[in-house]
């Protein structure tokens, strides 16, 4: 219990540091943060208005005060305004988050399915040549740029084979290729880590002991190896989130889908700092949340962690 609380506190600290660094970077930019935040054309402000607001919000006040103010604002969900659209950043995020979550969720599921299939094939496949061949597929897949996968899939599946329409597709049909694009490069490292962990665990001393009981290869893999191999594999979940977000940026751009990724891409093109800052902070929060979840799941799987923790408490 104390462990979980300290992990939460650590996560909060990481987020605070992330915010602080982004605040410092924004301060270093030409122009100033308040100006960026209130430079909303739809507000129709004259330079005098802005000057008044600057005084009101204390943009001339010392940096620490500004820091405290923007921290409070971010904590209450106020990320300022988008320069590009003039809409509050929070609103931009709210409209763009759901499609990205759907895309990323489907992509992750597909990737996990693919990864397990590859790992299973590489470990239990019928011939050693085939096992080796399947085992080397992920190494190839990590070397392929995501955007190229998307473009090539469109050319192959839509144009050449005509399986999926890109012109006016249905709501689900529209997602097939993006999900695949996102899943292929993510499945590869998951499969690599799974295969490696399975091989590592297979060399541990309890595996021949289990075989000596008269259990079959498959039963030992299922009953002994997988659970031990799952632990280190879980540790990459946070990194996986980062990969999914990066994948979303590229995939949404290639397929012209709306979402957080495309928003990020646009905010860089238009120098829309407030939007990008919000996306970075939200991703970091997601990373911290996932790491915490991984901690919980590891506790459930590994009895050693449980008893250490109870001793410490």
């Amino acid at each position: 219990m104390t462990h979980l609380i300290s992990r939460l506190a650590q996560g909060a600290l990481v987020l605070l540091a992330t915010f602080t660094i982004s605040f410092i970077l924004v301060q270093m930019m030409p122009g100033d943060a308040v100006l960026i935040r209130f430079l909303n054309p739809e507000m129709g402000m004259t330079p005098e208005d802005i000057a008044r607001i600057r005084v009101f919000y204390g943009s001339d006040s010392p940096i620490p005060v500004q820091y405290a103010q923007s921290l409070l604002a971010v904590l209450s969900g106020d990320f300022g305004y988008s320069v590009q659209s003039g809409v509050p950043v929070a609103q931009e995020i709210a409209t763009n988050l759901p499609p990205t979550l759907l895309l990323a969720g489907l992509g992750l599921l597909t990737a996990l399915g693919l990864a397990f299939m590859l790992a299973w094939g590489a470990v239990l496949g019928p011939f050693s040549a085939l096992r080796r061949w399947i085992g080397s597929v992920p190494a190839l897949m990590v070397s392929v740029p995501v955007f190229w996968v998307g473009i090539t899939l469109i050319q192959l599946v839509s144009f050449k084979l005509g399986w999926v329409s890109v012109i006016a597709p249905g709501p689900w049909e529209k997602l097939v290729l993006p999900v695949l694009t996102l899943a292929l490069p993510i499945a590869a490292p998951i499969a690599q880590i799974l295969i490696r962990n399975i091989e590592d665990v297979s060399t541990r001393a309890f595996v021949p002991v289990a075989r000596a009981k008269g259990l079959s290869r498959g039963a030992v893999l299922w009953g002994h190896v997988l659970r031990n191999a799952a632990l280190p594999t879980l540790a990459i979940a946070g990194v996986l989130l980062g990969e999914l977000i990066a994948g979303a940026v590229v995939t949404e751009t290639v397929f012209g889908l709306n979402g957080l990724g495309r928003l990020a891409e646009r905010s860089v093109r238009t120098q829309d700092i407030a939007v990008l800052q919000a996306i970075v902070l939200i991703s970091a929060a997601g990373f911290v949340a996932i790491s915490f979840l991984v901690d919980l799941v590891s506790l459930a799987i590994d009895p050693r962690l449980r008893s250490q923790r109870s001793l410490a408490a």
Binding site: V14, L15, A17, L241, I245, V249, V288
Partner: peptide
Amino acid sequence: DVLLSIPALL
């Protein structure tokens, strides 16, 4: 830790 918590591309 902080650097790692932000996705590389972002």
